[in-house]
Write a protein that binds this DNA or RNA. Structure first.
Lengths: 170, 170
DNA sequence: CGCTTCTTTCAGAAATTTGTGAAGTTAAGG
DNA sequence: CCTTAACTTCACAAATTTCTGAAAGAAGCG
């Protein structure tokens, strides 16, 4: 074991598990409040706060004090909404879960599937209530709003990628 | 009772409660899936599908087959997130709930409070993990993303209002 | 091939959320 | 003021969701 570097100029040789945990739980609480189930929120927080951006199932269960089953469920959820990806650790049957710093928040805006279904429901409503009724017009306007946002989002994300390129270069 | 107009060219003299209900439940299901509690979703759907854009508590309970208590709870929720407003029906102790077609989806984008809290949590994380650590940098980038989106949203909404003005004039 | 290590699935216990009836509160209208 | 219509609050029952332990299922490694 090499000597541990402890100088303050040295970037965090060791992380204070206490601080990490505080952030993880705090951030997870926000996600949960925004509608994400508890365990996925916590798992995601832990990944986000990891230096490598990856953790194994065991590490997650250990750090968050939850069962392997809970990890499994949470990860399945997160993978489904493209917030994490799973990789096989080479030369081991351990699985490893990764948060791509960029991919995940793009997933946030890619609620496309959701927006699409809202739009479908609204279109159905316009038709069945009548496009020329007050209610129908209201639904049509709402539909128009979502379509507009959907288009705009494309440009916004393009601009973000440029902005990011120069502010957070790889 | 006047004769009922039945021509296909005539815009829906009467609304088919069946169709209305189908839309309401379908749309509400999407909202629920996106994280809104059940009753608020249904109440909101009913308001959105009403011709006047307003319904009384009794009408809501009646149409959705729920208790006054459930209506009360749902409306409280919706008012809190600015998706409906409450008005007193003049000369009566009936309350009336209204969906402002424009106001409500502006509320959708005004998840400001939520985004702010995410940002706070992330800032805390950057500080406590160290801005010069890999994890700290990841959090900083994520924070940057939210700040960027927040700014962009202002412009998007301005453009929408213009777009809307000419496509859906009052 | 079988052993071992890790992950997933499943059934059920525990906790949380949701909706109701009933009592309580407010305010209109006599 | 008192009555009464309407909404809200509260405690509890019901339904749903969430997490766990146990068993089953893959996949590396000898």
């Amino acid at each position: 074991m090499p000597d541990r570097v402890r100088g303050m100029t040295e970037p965090s040789a060791e992380r204070d598990p206490e601080s990490v945990s505080r952030f993880v739980e705090h951030f997870a609480a926000q996600l949960t409040e925004a509608g994400m189930p508890r365990m996925p929120s916590r798992v995601f927080g832990a990944l986000l706060a990891s230096d490598a951006g990856t953790l194994t199932s065991a590490e997650l269960g250990d750090q968050l004090k939850i069962s392997p089953a809970a990890v499994s469920g949470a990860v399945r959820y997160l993978a489904q909404v493209h917030m994490v990806s799973r990789e096989r650790e080479p030369g081991s049957r351990r699985e490893r879960y990764r948060v791509h710093s960029d991919q995940w928040y793009e997933a946030l805006t890619n609620r496309e599937a959701i927006i699409k279904r809202w739009e479908d429901a609204l279109r159905e409503g316009v038709t069945s209530l009548g496009a020329d009724t007050p209610a129908g017009r209201r639904l049509a306007e709402t539909l128009g709003f979502f379509e507009f946002i959907e288009e705009e989002l494309v440009g916004v994300m393009e601009r973000w990628r440029v902005h990011r390129e120069q502010k957070y270069p790889r």
